[in-house]
Amino acid sequence: MTVLDKAVEGDVTAPARRRRPTGALLTGGLAVALVGLIPVAASLGAYPVPVGHVLASVRHHVGLGGGELDRVAESVLWNVRFPRIVLALLVGASLGCAGALMQGVFGNPLAEPGVIGVSSGAAVGAVAVIAFGIDFLGTWTVSLFAFASGLVTVLLVYAMSRSGGRTEVVTLILTGIAVNAFAGALIGLFLFFADTAAINQITFWQLGSLSQATWPKVLAVLPCAAIGLGIAPLYARRLDLLSLGERPARHLGVDVERLRIVLVLVIALLTAAAVSVSGIIGFVGLVVPHLLRMAAGPGHRLLVPASAVLGALVLLAADLTARTVAAPAELPLGVLTALLGSPFFFWLLRRTRRRQGGWA
């Protein structure tokens, strides 16, 4: 057994191992709640479909019996509701997992994916396309430009924050803040040159929404989400060691710089893919890992996959609320998550400050 394995098994995750039954029960409960919410979300909306009919339609399509519904109900379910539900699951899982990785990499419980500029960078690409009427890729233009600009922004932030072959966390965060400010200025400039129709579309995109969900958009996000969600748990042990501090982690065999590079790219991949199809949806990556950390402890072998499950559950519930609470109107999803997440962030800020005895 290597030094890294001994350290992880013996010292770092011993508390997590003692909590494993609780963690497994929590994850299982979240998965059951998620599975239970899916048919409910599919049944509710402007055209209600009973849950029993939803389940029957699903069984019919997978060849397990059941009956086919009338043409309108089938169209509503399979062309509107289910693409939106699957997209909410992918986006929520990506943002939740990215938030857990972000807080682990930076060693800061207040970190979230937008800190390194990926959300604002993706917004610049999307806003530029909408403002200047670029559409040579058809309906894919906004999503692809947003995804590409988000990834480029993160790479730029990372390159600008490196010095002497190393990257300091504080420098990375401050560089991200500066890039976020610059991206905000670019968005304002593009809005100045946009016409009224484009401004309305940009505003709707910035507020976040899944109302334009389609199966092609699901297929666009699926590979990025699958790659990111598949890679993330592989680095859970190293994140546990990194929580001890950079120097102890290096002594235990962790290549800290390489770990940061890989995980920042994974965070960028997950967040850029999510933002490119849903617009800016904040606080999911901040709130979800904290709720799990308070419930089941800081071990990343539980925290990373459970954050993906809870992120999917939270975003699906938020999207269901956004499209039903003010029916027939629809609340912007990003606004709803911010309204719920901001008080939590304020409470977390005061709690952290009180525990540390002040920051002065």
Rank of each mutant, 00 (worst) to 15 (best):
V54W: 09
T2R: 07
L316F: 07
G311R: 12
V170D: 10
L110G: 11
Y158E: 05
A126K: 11
V221G: 09
P83H: 00
E9M: 05
I85A: 03
E330F: 08
L244F: 04
G176K: 13
T171I: 00
L269K: 02
R20D: 12
H60R: 11
V170K: 09
R260L: 08
T2I: 10
L265C: 15
G358Y: 04
R247G: 13
G334C: 03
A232Q: 00
Y47P: 05
L292V: 05
H300T: 12
V288D: 06
P83Y: 04
T153C: 07
S119F: 04
R323E: 00
L265G: 15
G188P: 02
I231T: 08
V277I: 06
T27P: 02
A56Q: 15
G45W: 01
A327R: 11
V58M: 14
Q201N: 15
G165S: 07
R247L: 03
L252A: 14
G36A: 11
E246V: 12
A338C: 05
E246Y: 02
R18P: 04
G29I: 06
V169E: 13
A128F: 05
A295T: 13
L349Q: 09
F136A: 13
T175H: 13
Q201K: 14
H60A: 15
F147H: 15
L34C: 11
A249F: 10
P109A: 09
G133F: 00
S276C: 14
V49S: 07
A338Q: 06
N108Y: 01
I38F: 08
D319F: 00
G311C: 02
T214Q: 02
P50A: 00
G176D: 07
G164R: 01
R293W: 04
A148D: 10
T196H: 13
A306Q: 07
A338T: 14
V266W: 05
I177K: 09
V256W: 03
V256G: 15
G10H: 09
G92E: 12
Q201S: 15
G23C: 13
E112K: 07
H53Q: 15
G125M: 10
L242A: 13
V49L: 07
S243N: 12
G10C: 01
L110C: 07
V127W: 08
L69A: 08
Y235H: 14
G245F: 02
A296H: 01
W215R: 00
W78R: 09
V287R: 02
L210C: 05
R293P: 10
P15G: 08
F106E: 02
L207E: 09
L156Y: 09
V118I: 11
